[in-house]
């Protein structure tokens, strides 16, 4: 299945940030923005929901904690009593270092895996790059043509993009869908009109 996107290409991050706010104030919600480096304030300007990655991290980390405590309990005091310096068999202080390490290990690896899954990365499949220049010196704003499917909307978006500083506008067709973002619903856009930038 083919997926059509309208791409606006910018060559400056401040212009991009401003254009992002202006496009949303004009009522057009971009699908995704690709940048060579993180831009402070872009998440808010795009209206992205706060990430839930840390919640995943907490849950996976807590799983690691429980795994470690049950593993150590089983190993040192149920399956085979291990006498270390005459300490009791079931003794929490000596469990803490291993529990700490396993919690961190679970949480960090789990968060990477969740991030990969969420963004549609896969080990054996090359990621379809929307515009290779977004890894170098361009900032690419993508609009989904499935959402804005009429020709009139496409023309309007193109005109606005040009007005707000895009240096190039084109359409592209991808094999795979760009992983959809979760946007804030019923957000008050007033905050976009102010700000320091």
């Amino acid at each position: 299945m083919k997926h059509k996107y309208l791409l606006g290409s910018f060559d400056d991050d401040e212009i991009l940030l401003n254009a992002t706010k202006k496009m949303r104030l004009a009522g057009y919600q971009m699908h995704e923005i690709f940048t060579p480096f993180p831009i402070h304030g872009l998440d808010e300007a795009m209206g992205l929901q706060d990430t839930r990655l840390h919640t995943a991290g907490f849950v996976i980390g807590a799983t690691g904690t429980m795994f470690a405590v049950s593993l150590l309990t089983f190993v040192t005091s149920i399956d085979w009593d291990v006498n270390v310096g005459g300490k009791p068999f079931f003794v929490l202080p000596s469990f803490v270092p291993v529990t700490f390490e396993l919690t961190v290990l679970f949480a960090s690896i789990g968060m990477v895996v969740v991030m990969y899954l969420r963004n549609g990365f896969s080990v054996f499949k090359a990621k379809e790059v929307v515009d290779v220049r977004a890894t170098d010196d361009r900032f690419i704003m993508a609009f989904c043509r499935k959402k804005y499917n009429t020709q009139a909307e496409a023309v309007e978006i193109s005109n606005l993009l040009k007005k707000y500083g895009a240096v190039e506008i084109r359409e592209t067709v991808l094999e795979n869908e760009i992983a959809p973002n979760l946007f804030k619903v019923d957000e008050d856009l007033a905050h976009l009109e102010h700000g320091h930038h």
Binding site: G85, K87, P93, S94, V96, P97
Partner: peptide
Amino acid sequence: FFSQFMLIWYSN
């Protein structure tokens, strides 16, 4: 806190 406590508790 824990590093100090555990090393002392362990070595006894």
